[in-house]
């Protein structure tokens, strides 16, 4: 659908923020762009949605309906959240009543605190972010672009955001988002691109041949009832997270260390309940099958 062809960008005579970026986004994709602060993530997103012109190269096939959520949504306006969203809906071609209904439903799902009739400028960062999210979804977007959408949102809104991303992707739309936390990108994206020194390269995900960067390992007490030995999981290589879920222990392990961790667990009499790739159903099934072999 959307294709970047050797896109490069620099501001004025400054350094190159992006260099020779080739990127293809198809309907149904959920792509994450990871990179440090100032690595050019936001610039890439601004070029994708058409806010910025690339210095060289071109972007082809930009769809008509684009939803864009900026990283900071600081509104100094006195209009209320609902009225703002109604105006945005009208600009997108909805009727006033349809825009108002849709905006109300989105704000309900996001549980906007402070009231839908509160002025935008009185909203807290997280609530303003919810309004920013709602305005991008007033019309089912063919391309949804989110700049660090998880920062500032509360835990319940995280779930709703994941639902929104799933819905857009299920309806055939493409989603591109940035975040600097790998756990989040691994959970939600079907493909991950890393950005550094102005270059964008694919990393992990089905787009680079299904290489899994992290696996989730659930361990339980074996059926025989033998108590397994305690293990300091964090001391093992590659373990990023160890959590207790019901009576199982769920570990997140870097793919290259998963065999070692698995072996250690078995040696300590733990039973493997499941071995999955977090977040992506298709890949997790592949992961499970691989584990069965």
């Amino acid at each position: 659908m959307l294709r970047c062809e050797s896109v490069s960008k620099r501001y004025g005579r400054g350094r190159w923020v992006l260099q020779d970026v080739d990127l293809e986004v198809s309907g149904g994709d959920v792509l994450a762009v990871v990179g440090g602060n100032g690595s050019g993530k936001s610039t890439l997103l601004r070029i994708l949605v058409g806010l910025s012109q690339p210095t060289s190269g071109q972007v082809l096939g930009r769809p008509q309906h684009i939803g864009y959520v900026p990283d900071r949504f600081t509104a100094h306006e006195r209009v209320s959240a609902l009225s703002y969203l109604t105006h945005m809906g009208r600009i997108r071609g909805l009727s006033g009543a349809a825009a108002r209904t849709r905006a109300g439903r989105l704000l309900d799902r996001l549980a906007l605190v402070g009231g839908r009739n509160a002025a935008l400028r009185t909203l807290s960062k997280g609530n303003a972010q919810k309004v920013a999210l709602a305005q991008a979804l007033l019309v089912e977007p063919a391309l949804l672009v989110l700049d660090e959408p998880w920062s500032g949102l509360d835990a319940s809104a995280h779930g709703v955001l994941a639902e929104f991303i799933g819905e857009v992707s299920a309806a055939g739309g493409a989603v591109v988002f940035t975040d600097h936390r790998e756990a989040i990108t691994e959970t939600h994206a079907t493909g991950v691109f890393a950005i550094g020194d102005g270059r964008v390269s694919p990393r992990g995900g089905p787009h680079s041949g299904g290489r899994v960067t992290e696996v989730e390992l659930a361990l339980t007490v074996p059926v025989t009832g033998v108590r397994p030995l305690e293990v300091n999981w964090y001391a093992l290589p590659g373990v990023t997270d160890a959590a207790r879920r019901d009576d199982a222990i769920v570990l997140r392990v870097a793919r290259e260390h998963s065999d070692t961790v698995l072996l250690t667990a078995l040696q300590h009499h733990w039973s493997v309940e499941s071995l999955t790739r977090p977040g992506v159903d298709h890949a997790s099934r592949v992961g499970a099958r691989r584990a069965a072999l």
Partner: peptide
């Protein structure tokens, strides 16, 4: 009246 971020949203809309 509008800061840059806000205008960006209006431009995309």
């Amino acid at each position: 009246l509008e800061d840059q971020t806000h205008r960006s949203v209006v431009v995309v809309t």
